[in-house]
Design a protein around this nucleic acid. Structure first.
Length: 287
DNA sequence: GTGTTTGTTATCAA
DNA sequence: CTTGATAACAAACA
């Protein structure tokens, strides 16, 4: 479940590896991933170079060297972007399962081959992710319509943050996950931010006090920055949890820790449903 | 076969 | 018009 910290980690890794690398071949194994017309997609990418990789929320924006052309990639729930030089994976993966080192695998949907024979694999088990080519106007329209304040930038100010709550009555969790208001927070970090702030995810935003707003504001930056520092959460939805997971998993306070003891107070972490999603919290630490 | 998993959108309701 | 709640999507697994 790549959210802002995972997508940012992938962005930085890929940005340092594939910028100025020329795409010489595009293999599309599953056309459902491509939201641009098929012929157009390959034609534009062929012999293109990637000038820069940007990110807005959970969306990756590959700036192409062709005029007015952008490749947008969204990983949704199970998408992966893995860059491989010869037989060695270098960047972009967020799974440590052995099978993922064997590429392409049965979930590989798109493969880019670069002029130096290195490859970029787009894998997606559930086919929710997409690739799409747009021009500048369409890109601006997409960003304007669907993306709210970008955390960890200068736009994330106290004033802008407070405006989000004006005349709203939804739960804090639903608000945090609303991409049109704040971009990049999903289920994992919504729960973690709420724990950090000592606020139950189900609390209505109209019932929060000044002190709680302040905490939530600070915790969004704190949690996301820490997660980026540890290169995101490699979430294992399989039962085998052996070996070194690395990353942010060991710093998770509540997410997927239902039934376990709170790291702060020792109470048992509970799991409920909020905003239609599995939601984890500590009944003692969060009010 | 059933329920569960989540990012996003569509749809309907208030 | 705005906001919100919920279903739907897709695929795999317990």
């Amino acid at each position: 479940m790549p959210e802002l910290p995972e997508v940012e980690t992938i962005r930085k890794d890929l940005n340092s590896r594939i910028v100025d690398n020329k795409i010489v071949d595009i293999l599309v194994k599953d056309q459902r991933i491509i939201k641009t017309s098929f012929r157009n997609f390959k034609e534009i990418l062929k012999n293109s170079k990637i000038k820069e990789i940007k990110r807005r929320g959970k969306l990756l924006i590959f700036v192409l060297d062709k005029k007015d052309k952008y490749l947008l990639i969204h990983l949704k729930m199970t998408g992966q972007l893995i860059y491989k030089i010869k037989d060695r994976i270098v960047a972009g993966g967020h799974s440590e399962k052995k099978t993922d080192f064997d590429l392409p695998n049965k979930f590989t949907k798109v493969v880019f081959t670069f002029s130096d024979k290195s490859k970029l694999f787009f894998n997606d088990m559930r086919v929710f992710g997409y690739m799409k080519i747009t021009g500048k106007d369409e890109l601006d329209e997409i960003l304007k319509k669907g993306f709210g304040i970008e955390p960890l930038t200068k736009d994330f100010t106290w004033d802008n943050f407070l405006k989000l709550f004006k005349n709203r009555k939804t739960s804090i969790k639903a608000l945090l996950m609303n991409q049109k208001l704040i971009a990049g927070i999903g289920n994992i970090y919504a729960d973690e931010v709420c724990f950090c702030a000592g606020v139950r995810p189900s609390r209505g935003v109209d019932k929060l006090n000044e002190k709680e707003f302040k905490k939530i504001f600070g915790c969004i930056e704190k949690v996301l920055a820490l997660a980026i520092k540890h290169r995101g959460t490699t979430f294992n939805h399989y039962t085998d949890g052996d070996g070194n997971k690395g990353g942010f998993v060991k710093y998770l306070k509540v997410f997927q820790r239902n039934g376990q003891k709170c790291k702060k107070c020792g109470s048992v972490i509970k799991k409920i449903k909020v905003a239609g999603r599995g939601t984890h919290y500590c009944p003692k630490c969060q009010k």
